[in-house]
Design a protein around this nucleic acid. Structure first.
Lengths: 191, 191
DNA sequence: CAATTTTTGGGACATTTGTCCCATTTACAG
DNA sequence: CTGTAAATGGGACAAATGTCCCAAAAATTG
C-alpha cells in the first residue's frame, strides 16, 4: 500500500556522496502533519524521500480531499512540476517523521540530462506511478467497497503506521461514515 | 477530452524522415474496433499515434471495463511496458480509423538513450499522463455525476467523434442506466 | 428490402453511499 | 491530572447508483 522506490533511494545515496553531485543535494526534516508541498504553489525543489511516509492528496474546489497515494522511501516528489514548469498539482504532507533529499528543480533537470542512471530511474518511477494510479482508479470504479476493503485491511496489517479513518476514507474516495459501516458489517473491529 | 501530444507528433515526423532514424520507424493502420494492444499481452513495440483516436481501457476480473483515457495525435502507447519489461496493463482499441508510428521496444529504449529531444518528449508525455489520470480519478471520486456530466457534455460538443453511451459510461465509471437517467434529468436530449 | 443485431431509453425495485447529527472515547496541552 | 480538542461509532433518513428487464429505434448484414 505504501509505495517505495528502493532503486532510486540507493541511487540518491550514491549521488549524495559523489564527488561532483553531493553539493547539489541537501537534507530536510519534517514533523508529522507538516507539509512538504502545497497544491497550486510554485516549486523550486524536487524531493526524494530518504525515510518516512507521506500522503499525496488533491483538494477539489468543493473542499474535499482525495488521497492519491501513500509514498515512502525513494519516492520522487515535485518532478511533475519541475518537468512541466507548472504549479503543484497536489499537497504532500508527512504522516510520519520525514527526511528527504532536496535538490533544486534546475539541478534535477541537469541530473536528468547528464546522469543516464538518474534519467532511467526517473523514467521507471514515472511509468510505475502511471500504472499504480491507473490501477487504483480502475479498481475503485469497478468494485464495490465491500470487495476492496478486505484487501486494503490485509495490506494495512503489514504496515506499522496508524492511518486515521479520515485518511483511509479519503484514500478510498468515500465518506468516513461509509467506511465505518462497512467495517462493522464485515465484522472488523480494529484497524 | 481527447488528449494529444503535438510536440511528440512533430518529433516523430522528423525522426521518420531522419537519415539515421527512419529505418527504425514503420507505419501501421487499423480499422475501427481493431485492437492495437491487448491487456496482459507481451509487447514488442511502442506506438505513437499519427492520426485517429483510441480508447485505452482496463478490464477487471469481474469483466467490467474502465476507460482510462481517449488518446489522439502524438500520444505514446506501450511505453510503460517497454520501460518496465512487463505485460500490457490495458487494452488499446481504435475508435476511429488509425495510423500509428511503430518502433520496437528495443529501438525505443535506444532512442531514449541517444536522442535527448526524444527523451525529454517522453518524460513530458509521462508527467502529463500522471497529472491527467490523477485529476480524473480525483474528480470522479469527489464530485457527483450531476456535477461532472455538464462539463463532459461541453467537451463532447467540440469533438466530432461519436462516442457510444457504453464508452461514455465506462469512461465515467458508471452504468449506462445512470448515464441515461442523468441525461434525462438534466434535460439533455442528444449526445 | 427483410432479418438480425446493436444501441438506446427508461420503469421498478434493491443496494450502496452520503448527510446530518450526537454520544462516547481517545489524544493532547497546560 | 484536568479540561479541551480530535477521532470514533453509529442511528435515521435522503440521495445516488446499480441491477434486471423489456420495448423502441437505429445500424448492419445477407
Amino acid at each position: 500500500m505504501i509505495k517505495t522506490n528502493l532503486a532510486l533511494l540507493q541511487l540518491m545515496k550514491e549521488l549524495s556522496e559523489g564527488e561532483h553531485t553531493k553539493s547539489a543535494i541537501t537534507l530536510r526534516h519534517l514533523d508529522v502533519k507538516q507539509k512538504l508541498i502545497m497544491q497550486d504553489q510554485t516549486l523550486q525543489n524536487v524531493y526524494i524521500i530518504k525515510s518516512g511516509v507521506i500522503k499525496c492528496f488533491m483538494t477539489e474546489e468543493n473542499e474535499k480531499d482525495y488521497i492519491l497515494d501513500f509514498l515512502g522511501e525513494g519516492e520522487l516528489l515535485g518532478e511533475i512540476e519541475a518537468i512541466r514548469h507548472k504549479t503543484a498539482g497536489c499537497t504532500v504532507e508527512a504522516i510520519t517523521p520525514l527526511t528527504v533529499y532536496a535538490l533544486t528543480s534546475t539541478q534535477f533537470r541537469h541530473f536528468l540530462e547528464t546522469i543516464p542512471a538518474f534519467n532511467m530511474a526517473v523514467l521507471e518511477q514515472l511509468v510505475n506511478r502511471v500504472m499504480r494510479i491507473s490501477e487504483k482508479a480502475s479498481r475503485h470504479q469497478l468494485y464495490t467497497l465491500a470487495e476492496i476493503l478486505p484487501q486494503l485491511l490485509n495490506t494495512l496489517e503489514s504496515q506499522q503506521i496508524n492511518f486515521t479513518k479520515q485518511d483511509l476514507s479519503e484514500y478510498l474516495g468515500i465518506s468516513v461514515r461509509s467506511l465505518n459501516r462497512m467495517l462493522k458489517d464485515t465484522g472488523h473491529t480494529a484497524i
